[in-house]
């Protein structure tokens, strides 16, 4: 049976999405993207400088990838909408990761503003991927607003703490008929595998890859873990139990 991630009608060849901030160089970033085979890569529009004579980040995105600008820096829906429109006007395409943060200390997303921006941008034809706090009701609102997927956080951005929102995310997996992509907070490939085993459709990682000593190797490790976790989920794992299973069961005589 084919198992391909589809978002907004597009077939996505990898369930591992990579963010492009925090790398020591664009060359290293490019190598990491190539090594892990990420199909969707996010770029902060605030960093894109098309008029620059200097290195331009967009020139280092390998061919054949879906470029997904994010609205990093937006403090409310209005700013996110303006950033998304600027990205489209700059030729960055229709995909946008809505990221609205009005708290710089914890970098937690503002769900109410995110829903507003998703609504406006989806109506304008954007493929909207909102980053949000994993709340079931808000996830439904995002779906109604036209989101193409939902991207709950695993733990706050950059903390590398893993899937601390596990219970809430698992509810979203069960209830929301959209791809669920864990975004932010995953620090190790095992944590990405955990999200995939839970039934998430994909994960997005940046800090853990970009700030590893060997970002290229780490990118590959994440991609492998995501694939492994996905296969495990599809294989329908045996249940874990507290007690050993007796090889001579007590009720064997009933058969």
């Amino acid at each position: 049976m084919e198992d391909t991630l589809v978002i907004a009608g597009r077939r996505i060849s990898s369930r591992f999405l990579l963010g492009t901030g925090k790398f020591a160089s664009y060359t290293l970033m490019k190598e990491a993207i190539e090594a892990c085979g990420a199909h969707i890569v996010t770029v902060a529009l605030r960093r894109v400088d098309k008029g620059s004579k200097d290195e331009n980040i967009l020139d280092f995105i390998p061919a054949g990838r879906i470029l997904m600008p994010n609205t990093s820096g937006a403090r409310n829906a209005d700013e996110a909408i303006r950033l998304a429109r600027l990205a489209r006007a700059a030729g960055c395409g229709e995909w946008v990761k809505v990221e609205i943060i009005s708290d710089n200390k914890f970098l937690l997303p503002d769900n109410a503003e995110t829903i507003k921006a998703t609504d406006v941008l989806a109506k304008e034809g954007f493929i909207v991927m909102p980053y949000f706090n994993p709340d079931l009701m808000d996830a439904r609102r995002l779906k109604d607003a036209g989101a193409a997927s939902i991207m709950p956080l695993g733990s706050p951005i950059g903390t590398n703490k893993g899937l601390r929102t596990r219970e809430l995310v698992s509810i979203l997996v069960e209830e929301i008929d959209l791809p669920v992509i864990v975004d932010a907070g995953l620090g190790l490939p095992s944590q990405a595998a955990e999200a995939m085993e839970l039934g998430c459709d994909a994960v997005l990682v940046n800090t853990a890859v970009a700030t590893a000593d060997d970002p290229v190797l780490m990118a590959r490790a994440f991609a492998m873990a995501v694939e492994g976790g996905r296969s495990a989920w599809r294989a329908r794992p045996a249940s874990a139990g507290r007690y050993a299973k007796a090889s001579s069961p007590l009720t064997g005589f009933l058969r």
Binding site: F23, A24, S25, Y26, L45, R46, R47, V48, D49, S52, D54, G73, E79, R82, L83, L86
Partner: peptide, 13 residues
Amino acid sequence: RGYQPVLKDWQAI
């Protein structure tokens, strides 16, 4: 030093 110099991190919106 193994770091990337970043010249643009914001733009008027």
